[in-house]
Computed example of a mutant assay.
Amino acid sequence: MPSDLVSYSVKKRVAYLTFNRPPANAYNLEFMTCFREAVQKADAAKDVGAVIINSSSPKFFCAGADIKEFQSNDTASNQLMVDQANATTQAMEASGKIFIAQIEGHALGGGLEIALACDIRFAAKGSYKLGLPEIKLGLIPGNGGTQRLVRVVGVSRALEILSTGDAFNADQATQWGIINRLTDTDQLEKACFEFAQTIANGPALAVAATKRAVRQGSELSLTAGLHLEKELCAPLYDSHDAKEGFLAFVEKRSPIFKGE
């Protein structure tokens, strides 16, 4: 598949997966296949410690599925694309690496679903819109929107957003907890990269364990979650990075982690 639809680059242990399908990054099967391959590449790369998903367009993060293609395709073809999209977002969540959405333009439908599948979301201030408008097409979100949104904003707010399909702005998204950090547009790239680099240079085994503990643990009872945390924590004591962390603390210096 042509990689220019979703370009892949690495800067100081931070991978960038950049959407590049003008004008709105509306995705089809070809785009989503490229995206999944990029996610898998970043997950497997030893020189990558964190991943940023962004856009080459200042106006659009991603407008979701290409409606014109969706309308012209048969149901089986559309389902294949939806299955690929679901596999991609699930791969992001299953990865031991932190995925960060860098948003400075419209994130609608499947575009917002991709952002919701990221672990953290940074966004620029602006008048662009976010939303899940599928109800206005007689549909519901098909790439995890109903399930991930409710885990971020709660049942009542999720039903308000999903049942109306109305768009909202970045300020509202921040107030509701959808956006973690909101910055001026000219500061977004720097803020996102610096955050990602901090994670990328951290103890990779502990980061992966933390992500699994939070994501998997949030689906469990407290008792089961505490058991999972204990299971994940115990092996870390014998890791190089934990020993280095303790030593660096005693020696009053910054630790040098190796991800092992």
Rank of each mutant, 00 (worst) to 15 (best):
F122Y: 12
G177V: 08
L130E: 06
Q187G: 00
V150I: 14
G110T: 06
R151P: 02
N180T: 11
K136P: 03
F122P: 01
Q102S: 15
R181V: 15
S127N: 14
A170M: 14
T174Y: 05
L149N: 04
L130K: 05
G144H: 07
W176R: 07
Q187M: 13
A107E: 03
E134F: 05
L162N: 01
A170D: 02
L162Y: 03
F122L: 06
G111S: 02
G111C: 02
P141I: 10
R121C: 11
L112C: 10
D166Q: 10
T146G: 05
L112P: 10
N180I: 06
G138T: 07
R148D: 09
I103A: 11
R157W: 01
V155Q: 15
A173V: 03
A101W: 04
L108H: 02
L159M: 15
R121S: 11
G126E: 03
A117H: 15
A123S: 11
Q147C: 01
K125S: 12
A167V: 04
S127G: 07
I140C: 10
L112Q: 12
S163A: 11
N169F: 11
Y128I: 04
G138H: 06
G109V: 00
E113Y: 07
G177W: 11
I140L: 14
H106W: 10
V152T: 13
S156G: 00
T174I: 01
K190A: 14
E113L: 06
G110D: 03
L139F: 12
T146S: 13
V153D: 03
V150M: 07
T174L: 13
I179S: 09
D166L: 09
A124D: 02
V152R: 13
T183M: 11
A123T: 00
N180E: 12
Q102A: 12
G131A: 08
D171T: 11
L132M: 14
I114T: 11
A158F: 08
L159N: 15
T185S: 10
A117R: 04
Q102Y: 08
G105K: 01
L108I: 15
V155H: 14
T146M: 12
D119R: 09
R181M: 10
F122V: 02
S163Q: 13
T164P: 03
P141Y: 07
E160R: 08
N143G: 00
I161V: 13
G131N: 10
G111E: 04
I179L: 13
T183F: 13
G109A: 14
K190Y: 09
G109P: 01
K190N: 12
L132H: 03
Y128M: 04
I140H: 15
I114C: 05
G111R: 05
G154A: 05
R148V: 04
Q172P: 00
T146D: 08
S163D: 11
F122K: 01
T183G: 00
I135N: 04
N143V: 15
P141G: 10
N143Y: 09
V153K: 04
G154I: 06
S163I: 00
G131L: 08
R121T: 15
P133K: 02
F122D: 02
L137E: 09
P133V: 01
F168H: 02
I140R: 15
W176N: 08
A101Q: 04
G105N: 08
A107S: 11
G138S: 09
F122M: 08
D171C: 02
K136L: 11
L139Q: 14
R151L: 13
A158W: 06
